[in-house]
Computed example of a mutant assay.
Amino acid sequence: MTTTDDFRFHAHELIVDLDAATTEMMKLISAHQLSGPEWERVTQWQHEAYERWMNYLNARTYETPDNNGQ
């Protein structure tokens, strides 16, 4: 697997988790359940999923095109 494929695979996993957490949070908001243990669990999940996503993006090093010595 290439580096690009590795990036896409792991990025997809992280995005799916973040999307699931955000969806669960929005369901609770729609149900007016903005407190209690379920709210705490889901907001923590969403926060941690977002942090994992941002850490992954910020940790990546991207190759720059060869400028032929320029």
Rank of each mutant, 00 (worst) to 15 (best):
E51Y: 06
T4H: 07
S30R: 09
A11V: 00
L28T: 06
N58G: 13
A49K: 08
D6F: 09
V42W: 03
Y50Q: 14
Y50D: 08
W53I: 01
P37W: 00
E24R: 15
M54D: 08
F7V: 08
V16D: 12
V42A: 03
Q44H: 10
T4F: 10
R52H: 12
H47N: 13
E40P: 00
N58L: 10
Y56R: 06
L34Y: 01
T43H: 02
D6L: 15
N55E: 07
I29G: 01
R8L: 15
R41Y: 02
A21F: 04
R41A: 12
K27C: 05
G36Q: 01
V16G: 00
Y56F: 15
T4E: 15
A20V: 02
S30W: 00
L14D: 07
T22D: 12
E24D: 15
L57A: 02
I15N: 08
H10I: 05
A49L: 09
F9L: 10
D19E: 12
D19L: 09
H47E: 11
I29K: 12
Y56M: 09
E38A: 06
E13M: 07
T22L: 07
I15G: 00
F9K: 11
Q46N: 13
S35C: 01
A20I: 01
W39T: 06
H47L: 12
T23L: 14
Q46C: 08
R41G: 00
N58T: 06
M25P: 00
G36K: 02
H32F: 06
A11T: 02
E51S: 08
L28I: 05
A21G: 08
G36A: 05
P37V: 04
T23G: 02
I29A: 08
H12Y: 05
A20L: 11
R41E: 08
I15V: 14
D6C: 05
H47A: 13
N55Y: 03
V16E: 14
Q46W: 04
D5T: 05
W39Y: 12
E48C: 04
R41T: 09
Q44P: 01
D5L: 04
I29F: 07
D17L: 14
L34G: 11
M25Y: 14
D5P: 00
N58W: 07
M26F: 10
T22H: 09
L14H: 04
W53C: 04
Q44E: 14
Q44T: 15
D5A: 07
I29Y: 07
L28K: 07
